[in-house]
């Protein structure tokens, strides 16, 4: 089973929860927040493999170029443009569609590449962990997340995906293909607002979802009628306690502070399987 842990709002406890779930069940863990990956900070894995991931960008041989402008015409991302006597490529705008390579009548555009990021694979406390690190200055996280999922996810056993925050394409790339999505939120107006967006985004993928309320006990009852109205099952509540925040700050896991959560996790998993 593939379980995605997501949330619209950042800082609701996705990583804390994903790490605790992986520890409780010895599950495989994929940290898909390639912009700011954090799961490895808690697990401190011994890394076995490091891999570079490149993406294709056009490379133009100007000596053969007639500056006809076909490449500029096909590119919808304004990533390549021709001026009299020169061709400019903007790698950060390029989506790698190969359109320019395909249309060039002189065949003078070839595959070039830029470093998109790195993938890391390792093991800690019996947990297999994989994470990606997007190169600083690279805008597009989705292709790296895709590469990470392709390399790491298998068919068997429990696999947990720690997703990036938000509701944009990177989140959907991370959640897509999961059997279930745990949406982590907090009982605040921000938490509710962003949960609404995240639930809508996950629904477009057809992935069933349930909610975990972190920092429960904050006095914001408006959250709960929303869950009922949307048919989102409330699977677990984690109390708002300063010790948890302090342990997190030190890089300690949730289970170290609340070992009793393990049995709640087991119930949660049973409920999801149903």
């Amino acid at each position: 089973m593939i379980l995605a842990v997501a949330s619209g709002k950042g800082g609701t406890g996705k990583t804390t929860l994903a790490v605790a779930l992986a520890q409780a069940f010895g599950a495989r863990l994929l940290d898909a927040d390639v912009e700011e990956p954090n799961a490895h900070l808690f697990l401190k894995p011994a890394l076995s493999v490091e891999e570079e991931v490149y993406r294709m960008v056009p490379s133009v041989d100007e000596s053969r170029c007639t500056f006809c402008g076909k490449c500029k015409e096909i590119c919808r991302f304004k990533a390549i443009t021709t001026l009299p006597g020169t061709v400019l490529v903007f790698p950060e705008m390029c989506h790698g569609c190969y359109g320019c390579l395909e249309v060039c009548p002189e065949g003078c555009i070839e595959e070039g590449q830029v470093l998109l990021g790195r993938l890391y694979f390792g093991k800690a406390q019996g947990i297999e962990l994989a994470y990606g690190v997007l190169e600083v200055g690279e805008p597009m996280a989705s292709p790296l997340i895709k590469a990470l999922k392709e390399r790491f996810l298998g068919r068997d056993g429990l696999q947990i995906i720690d997703c990036p925050p938000g509701t944009s394409c990177a989140v959907l790339t991370a959640v897509r293909g999961a059997d279930f999505c745990l949406l982590v939120t907090e009982p605040t107006p921000f938490g509710l607002h962003d949960l609404r967006q995240a639930a809508r985004a996950v629904r477009t993928l057809g992935v069933p979802a349930g909610v975990i309320v972190n920092r429960a006990g904050l006095d914001y009852p408006e959250l709960y009628p929303f869950l009922e109205k949307e048919g989102l099952p409330l699977l677990l509540e984690i109390p708002n306690r300063r010790e948890i925040a302090e342990a997190y700050a030190r890089g300690e896991g949730l289970l170290a502070v609340m070992p009793e959560l393990k049995s709640s996790f087991e119930k949660l998993l049973e409920e999801i399987r149903r």
């Binding site: 800082g11 700011e36 950060e92 996280a141």
Partner: peptide, 11 residues
């Protein structure tokens, strides 16, 4: 701004 260091932040 947004969290992260990717597309929306760079923009």
């Amino acid at each position: 701004g947004s969290p992260g260091i990717g597309c929306p932040v760079i923009a």
